[in-house]
Design a binder for these strands. Structure first.
Lengths: 344, 344
DNA sequence: ATCACCTGAGACAACGATGTCATGTTTCGA
DNA sequence: TCGAAACATGACATCGTTGTCTCAGGTGAT
């Protein structure tokens, strides 16, 4: 039973065989023309191209890929969520570099769910992508070991893999945090409030460790009453700041471990006209338009993506060797408002 | 020559045949077990599953898809650039809805280049994605006609297709613009500066037309000296504002046709302490933290994406019928600063 | 006890392309 | 003028799955 007869409104896509018949040549000749092999007589090639145009033929990449199983020219990127500007800028860089390798990008968001992470990554493996870029949510990636052994390229970024050796690109979270707190200490602050998301996240643990190290080095007491975790949305940060300021011995400065928190804290301090010191980890767009001064520990997420993607394509290209870990530097940036003369 | 012997470091992936041999069953039985068909004796199924675990077998979706060419469970999304928050939030919604259909998303950015748009979309067709979501950059999509005829689902969003009939979801650019300008006129403004990106973009033409209509209705002269196009970056907007304010009969209000322009204009007016009226098309994050009051024509990009994606999956699901165009409403939102008492 | 029926399992073709090899034709030098 | 090399073309197997069909063996009704 021919499909063409069953559903005439949606014609079956022509295959190379149809083109061959239409042009009066063999299947293989069509294949040669489509793939630009030079050993075809001009006259035949023209007939084939005419048939291609006539029938609206377009090669089925799925079939081609199955036969010549070299590369699918597709890579996968796993992140938290694409709506987050941090990840969006990473995805942009990855897609751009991939395009130069004639490769498309499947981006999947796991939303901090380890189960989802696993199922998405294995699903990508089933689709036989050429490689994986992973910002992991879980701490156990042993389920990827076999895939990697069987040739799946994988590079982790922003956070390291767990139970798996793989190429990794990180940011110097600890060092950046250390210098953030050092700058507050140097300005004379001794009571520093620290706000963080969740300790289940690698970057948060590292940043907190850096802050503790800086305080220990300076001989300043690390008071757990001045530390709040599970601060997720900006509004949580605002509440935490208000809360800490009500403390009998309140902080005179705040260190926010990500930019969502920074925005919330900043908004609250600004609302109160409180001039506490404020340093946030991560820069962000519009930081220069915020209504009060603060500082950030900045680094380039694009560079992170660039280094990781380049490494991935090196592996896809067949580069052998032990997994490599690279740590990118951070730097302190003083961020003010558009015009500091605001109060004047 | 076996590949395993050529490159023993990267073992060949096991296929169903390997699993079948290892479990002492037929190929087809493996296929049945993998696909959860119920007609397999428990004892055999267990042997197959053990072999799968032993060998680290993972089904090749490419081959499966080739054989049973139903759906590839992949859709394509074409946008300008993923780093733009507007498109990132669209991509997030599309990916989320796609996930509920067990479908992954390939996002490609054409960066306003019509040639790139064409090649990317046709490339996606070659990959046999199940459907396309398109924010078009070009004005001629006749090259998609054959693909659509042959069953490729396609939905356009934010901007309409050219030379092609297809499902489309738009925003009421004209109406929104009209009410923006009406609000400025109602506040007594008669000289209104208009800043826009490029007239090659559909949304810009529509928004400008809406502004003109509002002025015509009110009997206010449309002075081309107060219109600037090719305003791309915020800095361009700042310059344009400065320039217009130097006009002998300067504008007392500005209408910015996108949010990048709004930010630049706002920054310049704030720097000058100028209290001109300001309305921008498109809301944006942090708008409520900006250092001076203004208004925006807001709409929900997520709703845009939701409606378009739902329609796409309806088409993928086989829904027939003529292409549909939907236009989503906008509304005016007064946006101020965190605390209007800033100057106090 | 016989036969129709059901069910589980395997053999084989098919999906749409590419790789390999064989074949027929042309070309060119001796 | 002939033979070998070079080239253009096609026949056929193949990639890793799933769909179709067949068949053996067990079940229940008559």
């Amino acid at each position: 039973m021919q499909r063409g007869l069953v559903n005439p409104s949606r014609p079956r896509r022509p295959t190379m065989i149809d083109v061959a018949r239409h042009a009066g040549v063999s299947l293989k000749t069509v294949s040669r023309v489509i793939n630009g092999e030079p050993t075809v007589a001009t006259e035949l090639a023209d007939r084939v191209l005419a048939a291609v145009a006539d029938l609206g033929f377009r090669r089925n990449d799925i079939a081609a890929n199955l036969r010549s199983s070299e590369v699918s020219r597709t890579i996968g990127l796993l992140i938290e969520e694409i709506a987050n500007p941090f990840y969006a800028s990473i995805a942009a860089v990855v897609a751009e570099i991939a395009a130069t390798h004639n490769t498309m990008l499947i981006t999947v968001s796991c939303e901090e769910d380890p189960e989802r992470e696993k199922s998405l990554l294995l699903n990508l493996c089933q689709r036989r992508v050429d490689g994986l870029l992973v910002v992991p949510a879980s701490q156990d990636h042993s389920y990827l070991r076999r895939e990697v052994q069987m040739g799946m390229a994988a590079v982790f970024l922003d956070r390291p893999p767990g139970q798996l050796l793989a190429d990794t690109v990180l940011v110097d979270n600890r060092g950046g945090s250390q210098s953030a707190v050092q700058s507050l200490l140097a300005a004379g602050h001794r009571r520093i409030g620290i706000l963080l998301d969740s300790l289940t996240v690698f970057t948060m643990r590292e940043r907190l460790a850096g802050a503790q190290a800086a305080m220990a080095t300076a001989g300043v007491r690390y008071d757990t009453a001045l530390v709040r975790d599970e601060v997720r949305a900006p509004a949580d940060a605002a509440r935490a700041v208000a809360d800490m300021l009500a403390h009998p011995d309140p902080p005179t400065a705040f260190f926010c471990l990500n930019n969502r928190i920074t925005v919330g804290a900043l908004e609250e301090l600004w609302r109160r006209g409180n001039d506490a010191g404020l340093v946030g980890f991560d820069d962000f767009e519009f930081a220069h338009l915020m209504p009060r001064p603060f500082a950030v520990i900045a680094y380039d997420p694009k560079e992170l993506a660039r280094v990781a993607t380049d490494q991935l394509f090196r592996r896809i290209g067949g580069e052998q060797g032990w997994p490599i870990t690279r740590v990118l530097p951070t730097h302190l940036v003083d961020r003010g408002i558009v015009d500091r003369g605001v109060a004047a």
